[in-house]
């Protein structure tokens, strides 16, 4: 059984092509800029079986075209690695492309290994390279995240890296340079994506009664985003803006 927050049947930003996006409930990070705080709690959501999900996926398979498929996002999908591994194994057996949109912030255990063995694409959100900064942003160390990237590299799993660009937090030249330089020798990093910070999730905090810590932080300007892209391109050949 998987604890599902919601399903987006026409995902166009979570991997290649048209995607069935499964937002799983529960996350242990508390990213300051999280735009889905309603997916953080480890309770709530709807319990769904692998078969139920597969049935829903099959109904939209014809829309996937050559590139599309299923993406597990969240929340943090690897918190439910055991059941998700079964789902991905089933989907792959049916010829469906699988993508995992994760923060990679867990120690890799047998369940995660099994899950990754049936994952075509890992979309890894590396929030900061500096451990202290990472803790400040998310409440957790980045040690597991970087180990996760190493594991995928070793196993030859295609990776898309993601970086949320938050003015004053993750947009310094020094940080962006270090971030891209760190991954420049990764053979399996296919692209990096910049996600410009936005405030559209702010109203959810109000609704949930959680203080919004980035109150007053403005989204990056067009120029700031272009600048970040240029910096990342110094080390990484394919940089996209989401």
């Amino acid at each position: 059984m998987l604890r599902v927050h919601s399903i987006e049947t026409f995902g166009t930003h979570e991997g290649p092509g048209v995607r069935f996006v499964l937002f799983l409930q529960g996350c242990k990070l508390r990213c300051l800029y999280c735009h889905n705080p309603d997916t953080q709690a480890m309770t709530g959501g709807t319990m769904m079986t692998v078969d139920e999900i597969v049935e829903k996926v099959e109904k939209e398979r014809v829309y996937f075209g050559e590139k599309g498929g299923v993406t597990a996002s969240g929340g943090e999908p690897i918190l439910q690695a055991e059941a998700l591994g079964v789902l991905f194994e089933t989907l792959q057996a049916r010829g469906i492309h699988t993508a995992l949109d994760t923060n990679g912030a867990l120690v890799i255990d047998a369940h995660i290994e099994h899950l990754l063995a049936h994952t075509n694409l890992v979309i890894l959100d590396v929030k900061h390279l500096d451990d202290a900064k990472h803790r400040e942003l998310t409440g957790k160390s980045n040690r597991n995240v970087l180990a996760f990237a190493d594991y995928c590299e070793k196993k030859g799993i295609t990776m898309w890296l993601r970086h949320v660009l938050v003015p004053g937090y993750t947009d310094s030249d020094e940080h962006l340079n270090a971030w891209s330089a760190y991954f420049k020798n990764f053979k399996h990093v296919e692209r990096a994506e910049i996600l410009p910070y936005h405030t559209l999730g702010a109203y959810k905090y109000k609704k949930l009664g959680i203080p919004y810590k980035l109150e007053g932080v403005k989204p990056p300007t067009k120029e700031q985003v272009a600048h970040a892209k240029m910096l990342l391109q110094n080390h990484l050949p394919h940089v996209y803006i989401r």
């Binding site: 987006e8 995902g11 166009t12 930003h13 979570e14 735009h35 889905n36 996002s73 559209l200 989401r242």
Partner: peptide
């Protein structure tokens, strides 16, 4: 309006 993982 849909942005990454978000619709309103």
């Amino acid at each position: 309006i849909r942005v990454s993982g978000y619709a309103v």
